[in-house]
Design a protein around this nucleic acid. Structure first.
Lengths: 168, 168
DNA sequence: TTTAATTTTCAAAAAGTTTTGAAAATTCAG
DNA sequence: CTGAATTTTCAAAACTTTTTGAAAATTAAA
């Protein structure tokens, strides 16, 4: 396989994977493009390589920066902005987890907490069953929360960083 | 808060969370409805409670069964089919992981493996950088794979089941 | 200051996804 | 078998999300 072909293939697959996990396909493709780029790319480069409009390119690069996955690079003597992706894939994963936890999981946990107090006959098996179901989900969410925090902090944590190396 | 109101709220939020993670909102709502139902529900119950069409209800229940999250229940002397959700939330999580790994992550890993051999000057820094990037992603995917398998098998595994209890 | 390059915005169009509902297929009691 | 109850299918409609592209805003060199 040729390099250009391999890059193309990677970008497509990364896009598909992203869209299956609720990430805009183009955003995932821009991310993939920057991940395998050997130099920083401008908006024009991105437009050209992915055949997308300026607005689309701009929007998705901006969102990738919100996610901390992409950074702006200034090239002296050049008006254009260039972009570069975080290449340490472990960092990429923790940034994504961090953001999704904050944006999506935390609001769900907040709702779950509000649902705990059903102000009705607490002897009613209907009520009991519901409260129990919610409690279980909350307990699980709490665990997942801790696991994520643990992984996010793993790099700064001797025990975990060494422990996880066992699985590499 | 009243029970009915709390259920409603839970169903809505579960639907939103699902759609953020690439799961059809209605499918997530049907799942939520069955999760907090105190008895098995028929297609008509689901249609009525979520205000959706028969086709939609049928389709999403069927897909939830494909995911192993919902099972059919036969009520003797009743022609209708009834449905019940897996209520052990740890099992729910592992089923989902299992399926998504198989359907979405494994195909990505397969593509990554094909991308490893770029038949071009392996001294070219361009080629080297790409190969390195792909290798890193593969290494990470391998880790993630192992972690998932580990969690999926955790229940059958003394060490992990006890270890994970530390975080409850 | 200009002014030209560049980035951002956003309404409208295109594309993609989900839902409906009625017809077809299936099931099963009598 | 027959026929009523139930489930499944799927083309068309509704809805949602993404993309475009040109105009407005911003930036910085001259």
């Amino acid at each position: 396989m040729k390099l250009a072909e391999a890059k193309e293939q990677f970008i497509q697959s990364w896009g598909v994977l992203g869209s299956q996990w609720g990430i805009n396909r183009t955003m995932a493709q821009v991310h993939a493009l920057l991940l395998v780029a050997s130099t920083p790319l401008s908006t024009d480069d991105i437009m050209l390589q992915l055949s997308i409009s300026r607005g689309n390119a701009n929007m998705n690069v901006r969102e990738l920066m919100d996610w901390n996955l992409v950074n702006k690079v200034i090239v002296p003597g050049d008006r254009k902005e260039y972009f570069i992706a975080e290449k340490d894939i472990w960092k990429v994963a923790t940034y994504i987890m961090q953001q999704r936890k904050k944006r999506e999981l935390d609001p769900m946990v907040k709702v779950l907490n509000q649902l705990s107090d059903v102000e009705e006959d607490k002897k009613d098996p209907e009520v009991k069953a519901f409260t129990q179901a919610i409690e279980n989900i909350k307990k699980f969410a709490g665990q997942a929360d801790k696991t994520m925090d643990m992984m996010i902090k793993a790099e700064e944590n001797w025990f975990w960083s060494n422990f996880l190396k066992l699985f590499k």
